[in-house]
Amino acid sequence: MTKWTFWVGTFVAVAALWGINYSLEEYANPYIVRVIINCGIALILGLSLNLVNGCAGQFSLGHAGFMGIGAYTSILLTTLSNIDFFQSPMGIGWAVVAGGGAAALAGYLVGLPSLRLRGDYLAIVTLGFGEIIRIFFLNMEFIGGARGMPGIPRESNFFWVYLWAAVTFIFMYRLIRSSTGRAILSIRENEIAAEAMGIDVARYKVVAFVISSFFAGIAGGLFAHYQGFIDPSTFNFNRSVEVVIMVVMGGMGSFTGAALGALLVTLLPELLRVFAEYRMVIFSASLVAVMLWRPMGIMGHKEIWHFFKKKGEA
C-alpha cells in the first residue's frame, strides 16, 4: 500500500463513519443506536483484553477496573475540574485519552509485580485489584460515591466510539505482526522456551498488559461520556467476566474472533429479550455449550479471512 492510498483510505473511512453517525442520529431508533454504541465499546474492550488473554496467554480478570479508572479520570477532567478546555468537544476527546493514560499507568503498577509470577496469580491479583478499585470509587464522596456521578457531558457518539474501535483493531493487528507482537505470542506458546530464546518474558507481559489497560481506559472514558452517568457498580467483577467471555467465546488470540465475541455478548442478551427473565439463563447456558463443543472458541486462532482463503494459501 502506498502512502497515497493509505491517506485516501483513511479519509474515506472517516467520512463514512461521519456519514453513518449523522444518519443514525437523524433517522435511527434511539434503542438501536444505543445497542450499536454498546457494541462499539464492547469491541474496544474485547480487542484490548484479547492481547493479554489471547495473545500473551495471561489471564486477567480485572478489565472492568481499568475501564473504571479511565471513566473516572476522564470525568474528573470534564465534569469536576473547572478547566474550560476540557468542556469543549475537543477537550473531552483529550480527557478520554488521559483516562486511557491513567489506566495504562495503573496497568503498569499492577502488572509489574504480578506478571513476574507464573500461572493463575495474575488472575487473582487483577481480580483483587478490580474489586479494590470499585470499592475505592464507592467510598470517594467527591466523585459521587455509591450514588454515582450524573451530569457528564454526553459527547461520545457513534463516530468517536467506532473510530476508536477501528484504531484499536488496526493497532492490535499491526502490533501482533511486529517483533514485539511475535515475542508476546511466543509467551503464550511456551513461556520457558521463549525465555530460553532470549525473550524478556516479564517485560513483554507488562508491555501487553499496559497496552491492553490503555484501551480499556479509553473504552471507559467513551462509555462515561456516552451514558452521561456512571456509578461504581458499572465496573464490577461481572463486567470483567463479560469481557473475558467475549475473548474466549470468539476464539483466543484471534482479533476478528474477539470482535465477534464482543458483538455476540452484547447482542445476545438484547436479542433474547423476548424470553424475558430466562434470557440470562439461556445466555449462560449457551456459553457453557460453546465451551463444551468448541473449546477453541468460535474462531480458534484464525482470523475471519482465513476461512475464505483456499487451502494452501494461508
Binding site: V241, M252, V281, L287, P295
Partner: peptide
Amino acid sequence: RPLRTAPRLNVLITAIGISLLLENGGQV
C-alpha cells in the same frame, strides 16, 4: 469431565458459565 484434557482456561470459563447459569437460574 468432558474438558479434562482441554486447556485450563476453557475449564475456567466453563466454570464461570456454570456460575452465571446458577445465579441467573436462581433468580428465575
